[in-house]
Design a protein around this nucleic acid. Structure first.
Lengths: 198, 198, 198, 198
DNA sequence: AATTAATCGAGACGGTACGTCTTGTCTTCCG
DNA sequence: CGGAAGACAAGACGTACCGTCTCGATTAATT
């Protein structure tokens, strides 16, 4: 009588449901903003029962984190640990990051999560553990190697330097100001102080 | 029947009610976070009717903005337009700003509003118009005068330079990392490039 | 600058305000029903301050009672105590009452107050004291004199007989069934049993 | 966290909640009157969420109607269509109705709904469709059969006769006058005119 | 004439209830 | 057992009235 909405794969986790939820959350965030991103709305849009969401994700923040981690890795991977860290490599990485924040719809997810982290300690913890800290470790490593090879001579430690750069880019992106190449280049010059033979 | 709990000032706005709401909102934000900052909770805590809040504030964000504007002016006023802008003046101003963000409970209001602005365009507009833009205009003016007198020789325009500094400080504060004086000093050195006779 | 809204008669009660309130209440009841008859709506419509209403009337029910008493006296006065009570006199009185209930907008006020009396004991008391009891006393007297002169030979006492007649008419009016003359005539015949030489 | 106060039967309607609401509404009406019968109060008393009430009942009137219909059927059922309609049967039915109105707490529900119907057309429609019309149809049938068998010889049609009787009884009950047996008996005599061999 | 006293329109106030929405939990039934 | 469906208790949303109050103006009667 009732048409089967979706083939149930039995007692294994339904990969279709998982993807539907991820996409629904992403779409809702982009289309209607974080305020409209309720569990009910996601379930409605994904054609999924609320319980299915609660079963697999502790909160809507974790849904976004899942998509953010996947997308970040695709859009602006940190250069591999064994790569040669030249000034150009770092600049390209930061440009990719800037484009992710400003032009990429997936970048909105990061901005939204950064904001939500300010409102909710649990989000702050998840975001830090699953996203910020791992990436920062890679970035710190990248910069450190650049410093070791004399490519950069920053006055700040690698972590603080990354805070200056990331903080500036996030601030510009979050206020909708955009990030011109000249701004980023000057920032790299002033903070990282690359060797003149760049 | 019910004893009057507070003298009604008639058909003029009740200053007591206004202050009670402001303080209640502030306290709730600090004690229980932005998530607990509901109109109902503010009304309950302030001993005020919900309608009194809706009558005078379009949203809870505007309540926070009212407290933020007052507190900012008290805690870290921008140096007056006719003041002599030395490197020390700028450094002191930025230190006051840093302390506001890190140590002052009122600083949490700014961080919360920055976050909420990311979630809600209306908040973004209010925050920009009533707080960020006016202060930025003063700060830009401050820096520009310092540049004119040769006190600073930044490679960036005054606005971008302020974005770097503010973005960095806000990022550090929002992640709970703290803002050591050495970080701020180096940031000033690298970005604003003060004259050596500082 | 501001045009004077209404000439104040000074420290005497403003008769215009009184009439405006009465008419506003009446109009609102007829146009939008009892549910829309709020003090705020009356004040709004009458162009009067709420306090002016609360100063002179204990409740909105008393406003309606004021209009009801005036209108009833005009539309269907009880025959004077010294009048000769013939069957025709009684029938004419009851027909006037029926018309008041069914056709007259003022009759809606009585139906509304009867209903409200069921919901609110204070209304029941006011309605009884200021309206029902005085009229019933006159009606009882009217019937009693008709019985004394042999015009009627009811099996019930005057009060119960009036309850049957009034109850029936109010029920028909309140259900919107209307009150045909034949129904009223038969009711008089069966209950009051007038002398055959009517 | 919160211990389950009641076993959840899942996605089927919770019969316990339904009964709790019905009883809470009934109790509140009897104890504090119609004015205190708010959805919030019912929910509070029943230990039920407001949404649960709004999910199943369009308005508080429909809650009362549910209880009224059940109680009426129990307390004073109309004699079955195939029963022999003697004067005694009709008198007993009307006495049960009178007792329901005067002595039974459930009778207050009918009086309250009759009153509310006067204030609110939607209530009038519901009350008529779900209660008054069905019962009246049965009563009309009862009387008609009594007339056909010569048990009664009323001057009025069955419907009008019932209006006289019901109107009188409701009026007496609503004014708190009570309904003595002699009043009811005389009313039956005068209006229905039963055959003398009663 | 100056003062006093009451009325008036206006509207702020602390409350309560409205009907809607979302939360996270729980239960049923189907595949 | 996973998943769709959806009932449930809880509680916030923003609005409408309640009845009380205070304001500043206006006007009549009393100094």
């Amino acid at each position: 009588m009732t048409p089967p909405r979706r083939p149930h794969p039995g007692n294994r986790r339904d990969e279709n449901a998982r993807l539907d939820v991820l996409h629904a959350a992403d779409d809702l965030l982009v289309e209607h903003g974080f305020k409209a991103l309720t569990i009910e709305a996601i379930a409605r849009r994904a054609g999924v029962a609320k319980q299915t969401i609660y079963r697999w994700w502790p909160s809507k923040v974790d849904i976004l984190l899942d998509t953010l981690i996947e997308d970040s890795e695709k859009r602006f991977p940190v250069p591999l640990p064994d790569a040669n860290v030249t000034a150009a490599v770092v600049r390209d990485y930061l440009r990719a990051f800037s484009r992710f924040l400003v032009d990429d719809l997936a970048g909105k997810v990061l901005l939204a999560l950064m904001a939500e982290a300010q409102h909710d300690p649990a989000t702050a913890a998840s975001l830090r553990e699953r996203y910020l800290d791992p990436r920062r470790a890679q970035e710190r490593d990248m910069l450190s190697r650049g410093v070791e090879t004399g490519e950069f001579t920053p006055r700040l430690d690698a972590d603080s330097a990354m805070d200056v750069i990331a903080g500036t880019l996030l601030y510009r992106a979050s206020t909708g100001s955009g990030i011109p190449d000249t701004l980023l280049d000057t920032l790299i010059e002033d903070v990282l102080k690359p060797a003149p033979n760049m």
